[in-house]
Amino acid sequence: MFLSMIAAHYLLDAGLLPELARYAGELVVLPEVAEMADREIAAGEAAGNVRRGIERIRLSLADALAAGRARVGPSRQRRGDTDDLSKSVRGDMGPVVSVMLDSGGIEALVCDDRGMNKYGHFTDQDGRSVPILTSVDVLRILHSRNALTDSEVSAARERLRMGGAGLVPIDPEEVAQVTIASNWAFGPNAELRAIRDSVHLPLARKVVQLPKERLWFKMAALTIAFAIRKAWQEIEDITHAERAATYLFEMIPDAEYWSSGDESADRALWVQDVSRHALWAMASVFDLPAERAERYRLWFDTLVGPIAERRDPGAMEAVARTLFSFLAAPIMEGESSDGD
């Protein structure tokens, strides 16, 4: 006897399934049925999580409203506003469009939609300019006001990355820390992998638009390059330091490749700027003990230098020039001498 899914449900609901099983002697559940049931259970649990999340937000919001910590902004056009833009958007005006039409006195709009926050600010109908921040900016502000500690900010950033937030700015110190904290006998730790994902996932998804996102791109490249310095300086085991440096080197996004569709007149200069700065960061480690310095020099002269020189024949000389100027400059009191 083959029971369809619906028949099985009816019999189960009527409490007859155990009877039937006793009569038939054996109840066989096909693997596909078990798999489907597992999927349904998992989907049900996920939906439950989402529902609970929404409920939590609603409760927090209700509490905040009741306590006067949150307020509802103008959600529709004010009487008397008749310009064409307002008319055209009135029918399906969402909260973000509403706030852009009438900022209602807010100091900043926090919006993680790249389509919006790439502009940095907006001007509402009253001519009021309002900065647009991202979740990461909120973390930065809370940190600067001592509402979050260093480790709390790092943990929050990591959660944001794990949650799939793209173009999350990378803090050089954070990359250095997670690089040093990784066990390079195996590879990068979860935090560094999350940082890697936050750089390469938006790239792979083609979310990054150049030239608009040049600043983010350059920061990502330079931050990783500076983490390479730290790897050589601070990872105790030389072999591990070298493995970390190589892994990070491969992680640096290539400005030339990714900007190939950018038709800006200054594209070549920008590519050179990014690649030479990154090269400078990798080429300027000079405070290592002898054995480590030897290994670092070999690593650079074998892996990094030849590729850089082939792609940009003047790069090495330019880096040498800048580096020598830096080294020969007088050191002021209290200043670091390692080029950071």
């Binding site: 080429a283 300027s284 000079f286 405070d287 290592l288 310095a293 670092y296 020099r297 650079f300 002269d301 990094v304 230098g305 030849p306 020189e309 090495m316 000389e317 880096v319 040498a320 020039r321 580096l323 020598f324």
Partner: peptide, 11 residues
């Protein structure tokens, strides 16, 4: 002398 050979040699 501690810098990579490709950089130091230019200097």
């Amino acid at each position: 002398l501690k810098l990579p050979g490709m950089v130091g040699s230019f200097m």
